[in-house]
């Protein structure tokens, strides 16, 4: 008797080779359909918005005139735009409404949001990656941040309303305490009310987990050998972070932060909860000024039944998307440069 039994691989029916290949082909087809669906969606989205919004941004009649007989060609490009859309405040009539207030509001709110979220977010990441002992407290903070990233943004609105707009009511009614002239840049009041400061801080809380997680990944990608080199020369942990790790991590932190800030630019829900007035006809002058932002103005216009308001909503969306795509492009550019410098 042979010590090892012969392996019989020829038992059973052979499965159809053609069938398996067809299955493979079929699945590939399904994949392509699903994938192209995403591309198609983006195309439909952009085209439908362009179709509705462009007439409110451009003066097509004037463009036509420029290129028709006797037109001034490209020389007349100044008249192609409906500048009033950028310079006017909102109005009861769509034709004379513009995005001056939300545009400036967005700039103020995002500046506050970025200026507060960046240091706190990067600081948290530095603590967790470079300083924190591996213990239960650190693990808890880490888990907490991951879970905060899943909290709906509207819940942050409730937090912002209570914590910033009302300061937990410890100061009693609105404008309980104030300093400076309300018309000047240096005006402060407690509680913050519905001003740009309250809005910016609320959005800061929304994007903080995103910035922290992105920055942590940036620090994790820095090779340990650099840290060891610095520590072995007798530098403290902070000197190592400041001189070596942070400079090396900055491109990745920038990429993540720009994406997070573009999320803040598009976010509307938390500020709706803040109770910001929807009809604003002034631009912010200080931290306490009333404001509106682009996504809120879009929401406001889109929720009206008149078709014209949908048109200017689409026009405002185009402006918003152009801003966001620019931000995205900058982020992608930094990332590409980073890849090249690592290669």
């Amino acid at each position: 008797m042979p010590s090892t039994p012969a392996i019989r691989a020829d038992r059973g029916q052979p499965s159809s080779q053609a069938g398996r290949v067809a299955l493979n082909r079929g699945f590939l087809l399904v994949c392509l359909v699903a994938t192209n669906f995403a591309v198609l969606l983006l195309a439909v989205l952009l085209i439908s918005i362009a179709y509705k919004g462009l007439p409110w941004l451009f003066d097509f009649a004037s463009i036509k005139a420029s290129f028709s007989e006797g037109g001034d060609g490209f020389a007349g490009f100044k008249h192609w735009f409906r500048w009033e859309f950028f310079t006017e405040f909102t109005s009861r009539k769509a034709k004379s409404a513009g995005i001056r207030a939300p545009l400036w509001g967005s700039v103020w709110v995002c500046a506050i949001c970025a200026l507060t979220a960046l240091p706190v977010g990067v600081g948290t990441a530095i603590y967790l990656e470079e300083f924190a002992p591996r213990n239960r407290v650190t693990r808890f903070i880490q888990t907490n941040i991951r879970n905060l990233a899943g909290v709906p943004s509207i819940v942050y609105g409730i937090l912002g309303l209570t914590a910033f707009s009302r300061l937990f009511r410890v100061f009693g009614a609105d404008e309980a305490w104030s300093i400076g002239d309300p018309e000047s840049l240096f005006y402060l009041q407690l509680p913050f009310g519905q001003g740009v400061l309250a809005g910016g801080l609320t959005l800061m809380l929304v994007i903080l987990p995103i910035i922290i997680i992105a920055s942590q990944e940036a620090f994790r990608s820095i090779p340990n050998s650099l840290r060891e080199a610095s520590l072995a020369l007798g530098s403290t942990k902070w000197q190592t972070v400041w001189n070596v790790t942070l400079p090396a991590a900055i491109p990745m932190i920038m990429t993540g932060s720009i994406l997070a800030i573009s999320r803040a630019i598009g976010e509307a829900a938390p500020l709706l909860v803040l109770g910001v007035p929807l009809f604003i006809s002034n631009t912010p002058i200080n931290m306490m000024s009333d404001f509106t932002i682009l996504p809120m103005q879009i929401y406001n216009w889109a929720s009206r039944p008149q078709e014209d308001f949908h048109g200017i909503a689409a026009a405002a969306i185009i402006v918003l998307l152009v801003v966001l795509l620019t931000f995205n492009a900058i982020a992608v550019f930094i990332r590409q440069k980073l890849h090249r410098s690592l290669a």
């Binding site: 610095s230 520590l231 072995a232």
Partner: peptide
């Protein structure tokens, strides 16, 4: 920190900082 200033270390893989040659030496 003082200990490491007095006891220097060179590692398995060369690990210069992504800085200039001058700044690498001047770092410590």
């Amino acid at each position: 920190v003082e200990l490491r200033r007095r006891v220097g270390m060179v590692f398995q893989k060369p690990n210069p900082f992504p800085k200039s040659i001058y700044d690498n030496i001047a770092y410590g």
